[in-house]
C-alpha cells in the first residue's frame, strides 16, 4: 500500500516537472514567446497576437501561465491549433485510432515473436538455434525502423503488390491490411529486446532446483516449462513488454511518416514543420503521460505476480 502510494506520488511529481518542461520550453526559444508561438513572421497580425496571448495568458507570471495551461489540459482542453484552427483535443481524437491500432498490431507481433524466439533460444541454450536467433534479432535491431519500413514497402507493396503503399485504411479488415507492414516495421526492433529478456529470464529459471525436482518426478517437458519456468520468468518479461509498448507510442512518429499514416506521430512531425506549438505540446504531453502511467502500472502490478514481494509489501 505504502509502496504503491510512494510510486504514484513519484509519478505525479515527475509528470508535473516534465509537463512544466514541455510548457516552459517556449521560453527557451530565441526571441520573445509571442514571436515564437506565431512562428512565421507573415502571420504576425494583431488578431493572431491576441489569439496567442489569450491562449497562453502571456501577461501572467510564468507559473500562473503553466498552472492555467495544465489545469485546462487536465480537463481535456489542450488549446487550439494555430494551423488548423481546431481544438487540439479534437485533432488528436481523430488521429488517435490509427496510432493505437498500429501500436496494438505491432505489440501483438513483437510479443509473439519476441517471447517465442526467447523461449526457443532458452530451450536450445548454447546451441546453433540459440546463437542464430541472437545474431538475427540483434542484426534486425541495428537497422533503423525507417529503413525497414521502406524496404518492406519496396518489396511487398511495390514489387509484389500485396499491401497498400500508404494510409491507415477504413474498417477493421482494411485497416489490418493497411497497417500490416507499418506494424512489422515498428515491431522489428523490439523483438530483439524482448527475446533477449525472455531468454535470460528463462535460463535463470531453468537452472532452479524446483525445475529439476519437477523433472525428477516425471513432469512432462511442456508442463515443466509452463508451470515452473515460464510462470516464474514472467516478471521481467512483462515489465519489458510494457515498457516497449509504452515507448512505441513515440516510435510511431517515424513509422507513420514512412507510411503516410495520419496518426498522432505524423501530427507531431507536421506540427513541428508548421510551427504549430500548441499541437506539439499536447502530443508530447499525451505521449509522456501514457508512458508514465503504463510504466507505473507495471511497477504496481508486478508484485501481484510474486507472493513473496506481496508479503513483504504487506509487512512494510
Amino acid at each position: 500500500m505504502i509502496r504503491a502510494a510512494t510510486r504514484i506520488a513519484g509519478m505525479i511529481l515527475t509528470l508535473v516537472v516534465s509537463s512544466f518542461v514541455i510548457f516552459a520550453a517556449m521560453y527557451a526559444a530565441p526571441g520573445d514567446p509571442v514571436t515564437f508561438l506565431i512562428g512565421n513572421p507573415e502571420n504576425m497580425t494583431p488578431e493572431r497576437v491576441a489569439e496567442v496571448k489569450a491562449q497562453y495568458n502571456l501577461d501572467q507570471p510564468l507559473i500562473v501561465q503553466y498552472g492555467l495551461w495544465a489545469s485546462q489540459a487536465f480537463v481535456g482542453n489542450l488549446g487550439t491549433s494555430f494551423q488548423y484552427h481546431q481544438p487540439v483535443a479534437e485533432l488528436m481524437a481523430t488521429r488517435l485510432p490509427a496510432t493505437l491500432a498500429l501500436v496494438a498490431m505491432a505489440s501483438v507481433l513483437f510479443i509473439v515473436a519476441g517471447v517465442g524466439l526467447g523461449i526457443l533460444s532458452a530451450l536450445r541454450q548454447g546451441k546453433r538455434t540459440d546463437s542464430t536467433i541472437t545474431a538475427a534479432t540483434t542484426l534486425a535491431a541495428s537497422v533503423p525502423s525507417f529503413v525497414i519500413g521502406l524496404l518492406l514497402v519496396s518489396i511487398f507493396s511495390v514489387q509484389l503488390g500485396w499491401f497498400p503503399v500508404s494510409g491507415a485504411g477504413e474498417g477493421f479488415l482494411d485497416r489490418l491490411h493497411h497497417l500490416a507492414l507499418p506494424a512489422v516495421a515498428l515491431a522489428v526492433g523490439a523483438v530483439a529486446i524482448v527475446s533477449r529478456v525472455t531468454r535470460q529470464s528463462m535460463v535463470e529459471q531453468l537452472s532452479m532446483d524446483h525445475v529439476e525436482a519437477a523433472r525428477s518426478f516425471g513432469l512432462a517437458p511442456a508442463k515443466l516449462i509452463r508451470r515452473h519456468v515460464l510462470r516464474n520468468a514472467w516478471g521481467p518479461i512483462l515489465t519489458m513488454v510494457a515498457l516497449v509498448v509504452a515507448s512505441m507510442l513515440a516510435g510511431t512518429v517515424v513509422v507513420e511518416s514512412v507510411f503516410g499514416i495520419s496518426g498522432v506521430g505524423k501530427l507531431l512531425v507536421d506540427a513541428i514543420n508548421t510551427h504549430d506549438f500548441p499541437v506539439v505540446q499536447a502530443v508530447l504531453l499525451y505521449m509522456v503521460i501514457t508512458y508514465m502511467v503504463v510504466t507505473t502500472l507495471v511497477d504496481l502490478i508486478h508484485p501481484l505476480l510474486d507472493p513473496r514481494i506481496k508479503a513483504k509489501d504487506k509487512k512494510s
Binding site: G10, T14, S18, P30, S247, A250, G251, V253, I272
Partner: peptide, 25 residues
Amino acid sequence: ARITDVMFAFPGLLFVVLVIAVFGK
C-alpha cells in the same frame, strides 16, 4: 536523480523532438 527521472519520462526521441521544436531544425 530528478533530472534523470524527467529525462526518462520522455520515451525515445521525444525530448529531442521538443528541443528541435523550440530551437528549429
